[in-house]
Amino acid sequence: MKPIETNQEYSDYVNKKSPDSPILKNCLNAFWVGGLICTIGQFIMNFCQYKGMEQTQASTVVSIVLVACAAILTGLNIFNKIGKFAGAGSLIPITGFANSIVSPAIEYKSEGYVMGVGGKMFTVAGPVLVYGISTSVIIGMIAVLFGA
């Protein structure tokens, strides 16, 4: 090996030395867990529609039920194990959004219920709402301009 002089050389060398994540295994796990969570959502949706609910309502029920399940699993210290195994498989569905709200709420309980639970609840999920809602407002404005 040649002596390393510059930061760039070191960075290349470190990249070579650092093991990659087991991406194939991770993707496989993400695929089936993510697919399964969506499928559970689909069953809930079908059941609501079977009971005579219209689609938008049914879809809201799906969100609420999945969020509630994720909150319970987070509280029971199970969600982080699922997340460790499935990665994006549990992060990308709305369960991941719920987990990102519930986990800081629990963690920062020690800093009190107002600034701890209330304040830190959105440390991870806050940006999602900021960017999601802002984008929707911009799209709404564009829709106004073009008279959609």
Binding site: F79, I82, K84, A86, N99, E107
Partner: peptide, 17 residues
């Protein structure tokens, strides 16, 4: 973890490094 990274209950993966 709480100070530098994420809440313990967050379902994230730790990279091999």
């Amino acid at each position: 973890e709480k100070q530098f990274r994420f809440p313990l209950e967050l379902g994230n993966q730790r990279p091999p490094t």
